[in-house]
Amino acid sequence: MYLPSHFAESDLNVLHRLMQDHPLSTLVTQTSAGLDVNHIPLILSAGEGEHGVLRGHVARANPVWKDFVATTDALAVFQGADAYISPSWYPTKKENGKAVPTWNYAVVHAGGPMRVIDDAEWLRSLVTRLTTHHEAAMAQPWSVGDAPPDYIDKMIGAIVGIEITITTLVGKWKVSQNQPAQNRTGVVDGLLSGAQPNAAAMAALVAGKKD
């Protein structure tokens, strides 16, 4: 990833927070036929290893767990807030006209060896942890025990676990750091006055609020 130093983010807590807030990863693996890309929700165990451990599951019918090059690291990409940035928001544009559009974004690349786990009890524990985590904010949280045991057994039999021990962790926060203070203020105001889906989240990042 192209990473100018002024866009680099190295704070482990900040990187982990984005991964936890945006758990749907783009998982890139090397296979016998070339690169393979899947979109897999991954849960982070932040306290394990140097950078954390990612765990999730894929459909048994998905060839990714069979056909991947174990000697090549997998890469999980986590996409945070992003937004179009109009040059009309820069006060300096009025002074000299020297401004062009750009796109702001925050992203984390987590790489490491991928391990496959085909074990029913491990998977049951993972699925329980995943649902407990993601259902926590629901008015009536669903739990694994809400479904018939034989149905859950069947569903667990249809998935395979994956685990990535993170050995490389790179963050890029392209949030107008290369602009002077008055332009950053203009970007915040412009974002908050518009209707882009991630406008408020990006405005907070431009203002320096990383979490």
Rank of each mutant, 00 (worst) to 15 (best):
P87N: 09
S88C: 15
H51Q: 13
A81L: 02
A46I: 13
D82I: 02
W65E: 03
E50A: 13
A74E: 02
V69F: 13
E50F: 14
L54Q: 05
P63V: 09
N62S: 02
D67V: 03
E48P: 10
V69G: 13
S88A: 13
I85C: 13
D67R: 07
D73Q: 06
D73C: 04
P87D: 03
D73S: 09
W89F: 12
G56H: 04
G49E: 05
F68M: 11
W89N: 04
R60I: 01
V77T: 06
L54S: 10
W65T: 01
V69K: 14
D67A: 07
P63R: 08
T71F: 05
D82S: 06
F78E: 01
S86P: 08
S88W: 14
G49I: 04
G49W: 01
Y90F: 10
S88K: 15
S88E: 13
A70I: 12
V69C: 15
N62H: 00
L54Y: 02
V58C: 01
D67T: 01
A81Y: 02
R55I: 14
Y90T: 05
R60L: 00
N62Q: 03
K93V: 11
E50K: 15
F68Q: 05
S86I: 03
A76Y: 00
F68W: 04
T92D: 04
D67M: 06
E50H: 11
K93N: 08
A59K: 01
S88I: 11
S45Q: 12
R55A: 15
N62A: 12
W65L: 04
R60V: 09
V64S: 14
P91D: 08
G49Y: 02
D67K: 07
A70Y: 13
R55F: 07
D82Q: 09
A83H: 07
F68E: 08
D82A: 04
A61K: 03
V64G: 06
R60F: 05
H57M: 01
D67N: 09
I85L: 07
S45R: 15
D67E: 07
T72C: 11
Y84T: 06
H57F: 08
Y90S: 03
W65H: 01
S88G: 11
K93T: 02
G56W: 00
T71H: 14
G56C: 10
K94W: 15
A81K: 05
E50L: 15
W89R: 00
A70W: 15
W89L: 00
G52I: 10
L44Q: 01
K66E: 14
G80F: 01
P91E: 02
H51W: 13
P63S: 05
K94T: 15
W89A: 05
E50S: 12
G52D: 11
P87I: 04
V77F: 01
D67S: 03
D73P: 09
V77W: 03
H57V: 12
I85R: 08
H51D: 11
D67F: 10
A46T: 13
L54P: 08
H57L: 03
L44E: 01
W65I: 00
T72R: 08
Q79V: 07
L54W: 03
V69Q: 13
V69R: 14
P87H: 07
A76L: 06
T92K: 09
S45L: 12
A46G: 09
G80T: 11
S86R: 07
D82R: 10
Y84R: 08
F68G: 12
